[in-house]
């Protein structure tokens, strides 16, 4: 009786499970197996060729580091090509990601040709990838230090904003008196970009780092409050009714029904807040705080060291993207019960 009723559902679950697990390796044609490893290896060889061709015009030190980098990429790609023969999950990953990596390497080729090769773009504003790579290596200590300072400031401000936003969002979403008085404040203060407060913040606060953290918190607070409040107040009335007939008191209704029901919306707020926090962080570091990646970019630009500017931009891309990924991973863990969530 149970089986007949649940048959198709179980099959779906089964399928979802097996899709994640290694399947029996299918018989692959020679062309398909080439497609697995060739793109990255070939693109690396093209990179090396282009760099060798261009490098006659560049200073030797810059050339060497980039050569070492490209040879290592080639080495790794060959090792992976050999390893994937007896490793189906690696093969599937390579077939999936190979074209993306190959395209990224070809972008490097294009960049190198446009800058160092044909000199279509003016120096020193547009250094070649080899130059940027060299800056990355030469200034690694300062870059690491800047990233570390940015991370501390970002996490401090973000945590502060999230806590404040969750508290105000829950109160506004749940209680109508709080909504009556809170919403006007939210509507007037919220839409002001946090960066617009910078002049005021620098006057009021004794420490630039402290005021930057407060500004980041403010930037995060608005979307988190907004989305939390709307998530809480849109909790399906029938969930609350059911909980009441089960004997739930107010605490249970808020913390075990309304907040879980609002979580999908809360995570959208956390995501939007994170984007706002990146922006505020970089602007605050550029104009006030004397450390961090934003400061580093402004400082390098002041010395016209554009290799360092690009290096810092690359670090920022990796840094922000990693933090975003962490947030999405957390969300996927927390919202396993939800169907059809967007993948990051």
């Amino acid at each position: 009786m149970l089986q007949s009723e649940t048959g198709p559902r179980i099959a779906e679950v089964d399928q979802a499970w097996t899709e994640g697990a290694p399947r029996q390796a299918p018989v692959v044609s020679r062309a398909a197996s080439l497609r697995t490893w060739l793109p990255v290896t070939a693109a690396t060889v093209i990179c090396l060729g282009a760099h060798w061709f261009v490098s006659t015009t560049e200073p030797p030190a810059e050339t060497r580091s980039y050569f070492i980098f490209l040879w290592s990429v080639l080495g790794v790609s060959i090792v992976l090509a050999a390893a994937q023969v007896g490793w189906p999950s690696l093969r599937r990953w390579m077939r999936q990601m190979g074209p993306i990596f190959a395209a990224a390497l070809l972008v490097l080729v294009g960049w190198e040709l446009i800058t160092a090769g044909f000199r279509w773009l003016p120096l020193p504003y547009f250094p070649s990838p080899a130059g940027v790579f060299q800056s990355l290596i030469n200034d690694r200590a300062l870059l690491f230090d800047s990233t570390w300072h940015s991370l501390i400031l970002l996490l401090g401000g973000y945590a502060l904003g999230v806590i404040a936003g969750l508290i105000s969002g829950i109160c506004i979403g749940w209680s109508s008196p709080v909504r009556y008085w809170g919403m006007p404040v939210l509507k007037v203060v919220g839409p002001i970009p946090a960066t617009a407060w910078i002049p005021l913040a620098m006057v009021v606060s004794p420490s630039a780092v402290f005021s930057a953290a407060a500004l980041i918190a403010l930037a995060v607070w608005f979307p988190v409050t907004m989305l939390t409040a709307s998530g809480i107040s849109n909790t399906r009335a029938s969930y609350l009714d059911v909980a009441r007939t089960l004997g739930a008191g107010r605490r249970y209704l808020i913390f075990r029904v309304a907040i879980p029901a609002a979580l999908p919306s809360i995570f959208i707020g956390l995501f939007m807040g994170l984007g706002a926090s990146f922006l505020t962080l970089v602007v605050a570091e550029t104009v006030g705080v004397k450390s961090g990646l934003g400061w580093y970019v402004a400082w390098a630009q002041g010395w016209a060291e554009y290799g360092k500017v690009f290096a810092a931009l690359i670090i920022m891309a990796a840094f922000f993207s990693t933090i975003m990924t962490v947030l999405f991973k957390v969300r996927d863990r927390v919202l396993v019960w939800q169907k059809g969530v967007i993948k990051w």
Partner: peptide, 16 residues
């Protein structure tokens, strides 16, 4: 009150 249970047409299970 918990002494009067209510079941709707929609099961209204807590999806989380």
């Amino acid at each position: 009150n918990a002494e009067r249970g209510l079941v709707f047409q929609d099961p209204n299970l807590f999806p989380w």
